[in-house]
Amino acid sequence: MVIRPSVRWRARVDEEARELAAGTRALGDAFLSELFPESLLVATDKALCAFESDVEALRDEDDEQVFEAIKSVVLVLNEINEEHDGAGYETEEREELCLYIDQILTEHGIDVPALAARRGIGRTEITDDWRDW
């Protein structure tokens, strides 16, 4: 089962908080709660849960339905990123989100390379038409 990036990000924030409380991390070295504010984590997790449901609800591998699910989650993630001053998702987070989308599709039996090829794009480009982050 694929783990949502937002779950991993929250775990990192929680670990940092434990280290601060234990005195094993200096306050000046703590930045994760700023990088991943609660509002970003909650909104991202909600968007990714909805994407999982959308993909699970697909009854066939109709390319347009698959791309509609991708478009939907990307547009919501665009909004979340914008609500966080365009800095919600940095390079590493963008890569994690794109990989997660690919992995969820694959986990549900969608041949992502073939899907992308039928559209004349590479596997890593399936979010590019809509992605602002």
Rank of each mutant, 00 (worst) to 15 (best):
A26D: 12
C49I: 11
I70R: 01
E16A: 09
R8M: 12
S6R: 05
L115Y: 15
T44K: 01
L58G: 01
R18W: 05
E15L: 13
F51K: 01
L35N: 03
I110V: 11
E61K: 10
E68Q: 14
K46F: 14
E56W: 15
A17R: 14
G88Y: 03
D54A: 12
D60Q: 07
Q65A: 10
A30F: 11
S6I: 11
F36E: 02
I121V: 14
I121E: 00
E92R: 15
S53P: 06
A69L: 09
V42N: 05
E95K: 09
S39R: 06
I121Q: 00
A47V: 06
L99Q: 14
R118I: 01
D45T: 06
G88E: 07
R12H: 10
S39Y: 08
E82L: 05
E107L: 05
L48M: 11
S33I: 12
K71W: 03
H108W: 09
N81C: 07
R4S: 14
D102G: 11
G88D: 06
G28A: 08
G88S: 03
E34W: 12
V42C: 06
V42S: 09
L48S: 03
V76M: 04
R119V: 00
L40Y: 07
R4W: 05
G88V: 09
E68R: 11
G88W: 05
R59P: 02
I70C: 03
A116G: 10
R118Q: 01
I101V: 15
L99G: 13
R4P: 08
T24V: 15
L20I: 08
E64M: 12
V112P: 02
P113W: 08
A116E: 06
D29G: 08
E64L: 09
A116D: 04
L48K: 00
V13Y: 03
E79K: 00
A50P: 04
E96W: 14
D63F: 05
E15H: 12
D111E: 07
I80S: 00
D85W: 12
R12S: 11
R12Q: 10
E52C: 14
G86H: 07
A87P: 10
A11T: 10
I121L: 03
L105P: 02
E52V: 15
G28Y: 09
P37V: 09
S39V: 09
G120N: 03
L75Y: 03
I121M: 04
D45A: 03
F51N: 05
E38V: 09
L20G: 04
R18Y: 11
R8I: 15
Q103A: 14
A21G: 01
